[in-house]
């Protein structure tokens, strides 16, 4: 077990290294001088020079790459071209709202998606299942703009039940925290929850067709226990995989949703960085969100062992 954990963890190192190389190399796809492009059309020579030094563009690429990697390993992602603050500091400051949003979205999506998928599979071909299948094609296509602005229009503008936008940290009271975060979290969850529900349904269909389920039912095990203990546990691995993989969709979604709901998180930081052409910040956000994504999928892989003791590597 421990050996597997270590080996699987070591496997993430080359992936992270490749991600770092890609993120770094992106700067060279720029036609012309990267410093000029980042500075924009109205930049003064002094500004361009500052960017050039900030990005170490005055040194050869391989020197820069290893310097950049070395700094990164020490927790240094460089300095923002716009604010002059360390990128890691800026990201750390914005971490809480985004983390809260993503965690709440995962809770909602799993809480809705898994039971919906289980019930649809249990009653395959029934009314619920038919509605489910039709609704899933539908909700797969809902752009986050519709779910976000739609919810805001109904519950904030028209009914006035919830605040239109903003963020309130959890330590300032759970009520404010949830009331401000619930709409963004639901809006961002649409496609993700559909994904989870669909995978749950098809994985459950595979498991429910097996002999041991029939045995359990004929010997009189209560239906809910058959579904959620006997079947779901064996159907869990594809579901957990999609929960992990789908986080990438959520992370991308935060960029838009934080803009719509004025949440001061990583997504908003990214959008501001785009506006200011703050390349070190964009680079840092992309690199760190990728690493978070890789680590999350590492954890997902490790949980396979819990759900399926046969998994041994």
């Amino acid at each position: 077990m421990l050996g597997y954990v270590i080996r699987r963890a070591l496997l993430t190192i080359p992936v992270v290294a490749i991600v770092a190389a890609i993120v770094f190399a992106m700067l060279y796809f720029t036609p012309g001088d990267p410093a000029l492009v980042i500075a924009g059309d109205q930049a003064t020579p002094a500004q361009i020079e500052r960017i050039r030094v900030a990005l170490h563009l005055d040194q050869p690429p391989y020197v820069r790459f290893f310097a950049w990697i070395g700094q990164f390993l020490q927790g240094d992602l460089g300095v923002s071209v716009f604010t002059g603050q360390p990128v890691t500091y800026m990201i750390a400051q914005r971490l809480e709202p985004t983390l809260s949003l993503v965690v709440l979205a995962v809770l909602i999506s799993v809480g809705v998606g898994v039971p919906a998928g289980v019930i649809a599979a249990w009653r395959q071909g029934g009314t619920f299942d038919k509605v489910f299948v039709a609704a899933s094609t539908f909700s797969f296509s809902v752009p986050v703009f519709i779910s976000a602005y739609g919810l805001a229009y109904i519950f904030a503008t028209t009914l006035g039940w919830l605040p239109v936008q903003g963020f309130s940290p959890i330590q300032d009271g759970l009520g404010d925290f949830v009331s401000r975060l619930i709409m963004p979290a639901i809006a961002i969850s649409m496609i993700y929850a559909t994904l989870i529900a669909n995978v749950t349904r098809s994985s459950m269909l595979d498991v429910l067709g097996q002999d041991y389920i029939r045995t359990a039912i004929t010997k009189g095990v209560p239906r809910s226990q058959v579904l959620f203990r006997h079947a779901l546990k064996n159907a869990a691995i594809p579901v957990i995989t999609v929960v992990g993989n789908g986080i990438g969709v959520l992370i991308g979604g935060t960029v838009i949703i934080e803009t719509i709901f004025a949440i001061p998180g990583i997504g908003r930081l990214t959008v501001d960085a785009i506006m200011h052409r703050d390349y070190p910040v964009i680079q840092g956000v992309v690199l760190l969100s990728s690493i978070a994504y890789v680590l999350l999928n590492l954890i997902v892989d490790l949980t396979y062992v819990v759900f399926d003791p046969r998994v041994r590597y």
Binding site: V15, V16, I18, V19, I22, V23, M26, G248, V249, I251, G252, G253, V255, I256, T270, I274, I282, Q283, V285, V286, S289, S290, Y293, V294
Partner: peptide, 10 residues
């Protein structure tokens, strides 16, 4: 391993 929209932004 890079979230799609993040990569497109980059």
């Amino acid at each position: 391993a890079i979230p799609a929209i993040m990569f497109a932004i980059l």
